[in-house]
Amino acid sequence: MTNLIATHWNYLVVVALMLIGLYIVMSRQNLVKKIIGLAIFQTALFLLYISLGRISGGTAPIIDAAKDYTYSNPLPHVLILTAIVVGVATTALGLALILRINDAFGTIEEDEILAMKDADRKAFKGKTDGGDE
C-alpha cells in the first residue's frame, strides 16, 4: 500500500484535485468561485494526461540516432495543449457571463440571484396571464 502511494502519488494528487474542484463547483454560492472550482477540476484532468505520458528516465522525444535514449510519449502533452485552450475559453466565457449577470442582477451570489429570479417569475406571470386559467 505504502509502496503504491510512493510510486503513484501523482495520481492521488489528480484524484484529490478532481474532488476538490467538483466540491467547490457544487457547494459554493459565489459564481466566480464556481468557475475557479471548474478550473481546478480541469487542471486535475490535465495532470492525469501528462502523468500518463511520462516515463521515468525518459527524455524529450527528439530522435537522436547516435544514442539509445528512452523517450517520453509526446502525444498526451499535445492533447492537453488543446484541452488547456478549451479550458481557457470556458473560463473566459464563464467570467464574461458573470460580468453580464452582475450588470443585470447587481450581485454574483447564487442565492440572491435565485430570489430575484422568483420575483421575475411572479412579475412575468402578472404581466402575461391574459385569459382565464
Partner: peptide
C-alpha cells in the same frame, strides 16, 4: 444569463 451560466458549468 443564469440559464446560460448553468448550461456552461
Amino acid at each position: 444569463l443564469i440559464a446560460a451560466y448553468n448550461y456552461l458549468i
